[in-house]
Design a protein around this nucleic acid. Structure first.
Lengths: 206, 206
DNA sequence: GTCTATAAATAGATAGAC
DNA sequence: GTCTATCTATTTATAGAC
């Protein structure tokens, strides 16, 4: 447990991640980030140079961690079904570990990733390429039906992102009573739901 | 086909919808909206009063149209499976008809709908309540398994939103070559994919 | 209804002392 | 590394002529 003077770099990073998640890049305010980190605003520029550079740091941190983890899953010598389960579990656990990940990624997808440089874009793409490989393996082995990998990816991932983005919201706003009633849930229950849905979507027998 | 002087109100509305979809509320610029509508910026305030009021108009227009359509589907005297297919078709067609709908709704979800007043929120919630009723009917009739309606909704809708949000993006940016390769697709093919996935998720027999 | 000019507020960013 | 004070640009919004 850190005390009086935590590392201002890390404090700024964490406060920025939350601010970007809540408001998006444009609506995020450097003053609010500094206040959240309990650090003088000038320190933000001392450590990161600009609001955009700080944002890119947050993005890269996300995709570095998630990308490496799902790449390892795809390359492992396991059956496709186990890999698909593992990929889903990895995405859900990473989303739960970094609460800012789902909202930020959702906005980037919605906006066409205007703030993302080529290197970061490659990391983000790697998350898809990992499932694509897993699905292709399952199809080669005859355990998955001939579903389109991209469409499958675009069905699984958004549901994970939205689920967690909504949980943040539900815990902040009172208004969402109707929709909120069922949430929040246990992470493990949600993982099972997504795994079951994904397997059903890819099952071969009609 | 409208000519020299189209209704400035409608022109502003349409330009605003696209600008909000591309950038989000905060990053949207009233100057750009006015330029896009080929109308003087002051007209925006004459017709709508403020940037926020204009945004709320766009939101309400979306949910009014979609909400009424899916409510009618849920209340019709049809089998649950047909209603589910119809709900999906309605969402996809509305998303295709209003290209600004998916990005705007994604951002609102990601942000916790900070700009949405209670009435508009009720409309948005109605979209969920319609599928919830359809799923409940199917479960009563024994044709759907006992899946959670909210989780099911949160699996189907995000995939539709992201699919169309991505298409806008893919057509604008060159960089997304890897992911873009498979898209864009025909709307009908996508509708079938979602319908197939949703039925698989809710199928009773294991 | 339409436009020009401008007010008023706020943002990101930096200079420079300590 | 940290902070105060401030600069500069940008943005929403309005006043007022036509």
């Amino acid at each position: 447990m850190q005390r009086a003077r935590p590392d201002s770099h890390a404090a700024l990073f964490h406060a920025a991640a939350l601010e970007f998640a809540d408001r998006g890049f444009e609506a995020a305010r450097v003053d609010r980030i500094a206040a959240g980190a309990r650090v003088n605003k000038a320190m933000l520029y001392y450590h990161f140079g600009s609001k955009l550079a700080l944002y890119v740091e947050v993005l890269r941190d996300m995709f570095r961690a998630v990308g490496a983890r799902v790449r390892a899953i795809a390359d492992a010598p396991d059956p496709a079904e186990a890999k698909l389960d593992a990929w889903i579990r990895a995405m859900v656990e990473e989303a739960a570990a970094r609460p800012w990940f789902p909202p930020i990624m959702l906005r980037e997808v919605a906006s066409g990733a205007p703030h993302i440089d080529d290197e970061t874009f490659g990391m983000m793409n790697g998350v898809y390429l990992a499932v694509r490989d897993v699905i292709a393996q399952g199809q080669r082995d005859g355990v998955f039906r001939d579903a389109d990998p991209l469409l499958t990816y675009l069905t699984i991932l958004p549901s994970i992102l939205i689920f967690f983005a909504r949980q943040r919201v539900v815990s902040q706003h009172k208004r969402a009573s109707g929709l909120a009633a069922a949430a929040p849930r246990q992470t493990d229950e949600f993982i099972r739901h997504v795994q079951t849905s994904a397997r059903a979507m890819l099952r071969r027998d009609r």
